[in-house]
């Protein structure tokens, strides 16, 4: 089993290299640093000197892969690839366009992101699974049909509507919580409660329906019939037998997103003014700060791969078939 995890970890390395190469190609090969400088400076101020200055300030004035002018290992180290891309492997993300350390920003912004994302995730999981179990318990009845219809309706509504509508009703009409903002510590409760509720409602439709499908698939299996033939009550069949087996497909979708919670949510954070990584990313996109976007892409895929490995480990906990192989 340890060999299995080590193998998965080793497998992550080429993936990360691939991600790195891909983002490097996207950011430096599709468009040259000159193009970027031109766009950032705007048509009016473009002069060759201005472009050079822009590049120099940001460290883009080096060759892409191989620096013929340098000596020894610097041939490869004094290049854009080495300094901007390869350095990310040691989590050195460099500086944003406004000169701040990206690594530091990430470290300070993870907290607010988690304060929204983690409760949303946990509350959401409980709500979705309970709703799905309820529908499964009353399957093929009018209650189930109504539940599914509600799910389809909820998942047809744009996520933006939940945020805008929620802000309007709860904050503007009822004045229950501030529209946006954030403060650290216990005082942040009034700021985070609405984003969390909206985050949960936002995906109640699709998630509950997905869980319901999983439960229904399990409930059609032979071992469930065996459990009923033992004289177990329907609730007990559902909780002891079905839920335990359904954990396997559920984990596939759930565990992989846990590390990504650190990244926060783009929409929620920007609407509610949460100083997390999500709003950081959006600001960077709007300001066309490529260093930050590149850092977030790399961080995102790193966390995703961590999620994949966690998924594999969690399988070994719930599924004896994986554990014993």
């Amino acid at each position: 089993m340890i060999a299995y995890i080590i193998r998965r970890l080793l497998y992550a390395v080429p993936i990360l290299i691939g991600v790195n190469l891909l983002t490097f190609a996207l950011f430096f090969v599709v468009n040259t640093p000159d193009d970027m400088a031109r766009m950032q400076l705007g048509i009016k101020r473009v002069t060759p000197e201005a472009i050079e200055k822009w590049k120099q300030q940001r460290g883009y004035d080096k060759p892409l892969f191989r620096n013929g002018a340098a000596n020894g290992t610097d041939k490869f180290r004094d290049t854009i690839f080495w300094q901007k891309s390869a350095s990310m492997f040691v989590l050195d993300f460099g500086y944003s366009d406004d000169g701040r350390s990206i690594g530091h920003e990430i470290a300070t912004r993870m907290g607010p992101s988690l304060a929204i994302a983690l409760p949303t995730f946990l509350v959401g999981l409980v709500v979705y699974v309970s709703f799905a179990l309820l529908m499964t318990l009353f399957r093929a009845t009018a209650l189930d049909m109504a539940g599914v219809a509600l799910c389809v309706l909820l998942m047809s509504v744009s996520g933006l509507f939940y945020i805008i509508g929620g802000q309007f009703v709860v904050s503007k009409l009822w004045h229950l919580v501030p529209i946006s903002g954030y403060s650290g510590g216990i005082g942040s409760f009034k700021f985070v409660v609405l984003p969390i509720v909206i985050g949960v409602i936002g995906s109640v439709g699709s998630s509950s329906r997905w869980y319901r499908t999983i439960f229904l698939e399990e409930i059609g299996k032979d071992y469930v019939r065996t459990a009923r033939a033992k004289g177990l009550s329907e609730l007990r069949v559902l909780f002891r037998h079905v839920l335990k087996n359904a954990m396997i497909p559920i984990l596939t979708g759930v565990v992989v997103v846990i590390p990504l919670l650190f990244m926060g949510s783009l929409l929620t954070e920007s609407f509610f003014g949460i100083p997390g990584l999500g709003s950081y990313t959006i600001d960077a996109i709007n300001a066309q700060d490529f260093s930050v976007v590149r850092a977030m892409v790399f961080l995102g895929s790193l966390l995703y791969i961590v999620g994949l490995i966690l998924t594999d480990i969690s399988y070994t906990m719930v599924d004896p078939r994986v554990r014993l192989q």
Binding site: P14, I15, G18, V19, L22, T23, L26, F27, V30, N31, D35, M36, R38, M39, L260, M263, L266, T281, I285, Q288, F290, V293, R294, M296, V297, G300, S301, Y304, I305, L308
Partner: peptide, 28 residues
Amino acid sequence: YIYTVLSSIPSVLLIAAAVLMMQVTIDT
């Protein structure tokens, strides 16, 4: 390998990065 690499990048970020680069190309 290709699809693991692609799907390991959170899709909104990948789209954002690609659209930004496209923006640069169109603008220049």
